[in-house]
């Protein structure tokens, strides 16, 4: 099984080293080879299961209620200023 590790790393937002690319390509090839066995199963007419508990369309009243304070929400921000998270420049 050949996988395009550069494309997958891009989709995954992961900067991989050349060594990681070689190692992961081989290991993922083995794992994908293994999961191919699902193709043996006849799934014609079978409904998919997203999760196993019979709960559907959970709704709640759209009322304002207290949440995290700004201080708590920003407590772990790597860089912040004036109640905002600082990031590298996005627009010129």
């Amino acid at each position: 099984m050949q996988i395009d590790i550069d494309h997958l790393a891009m989709l995954s937002r992961l900067a991989l080293t050349p060594e990681e690319k070689v190692k992961f390509s081989a290991q993922l090839g083995d794992i994908i080879g293994y999961i191919e066995k699902l193709k043996e199963v006849n799934v014609d007419g079978v409904e998919p299961t997203a999760h196993a508990t019979p709960i559907f369309n959970v709704l709640q009243a759209d009322d304002p209620r207290p949440g995290l304070s700004v201080e708590d929400a920003l407590r772990n921000a790597p860089v912040q200023r004036d109640h905002m998270v600082v990031v590298p420049r996005v627009v010129e």
Partner: peptide, 23 residues
Amino acid sequence: IILGTYVLSSGYYDAYYGRAQKV
């Protein structure tokens, strides 16, 4: 993360993720 990205990626979704949910 890479394996999960692969099984959800365009062209593979039905073959892997969709099938796994039926299994």
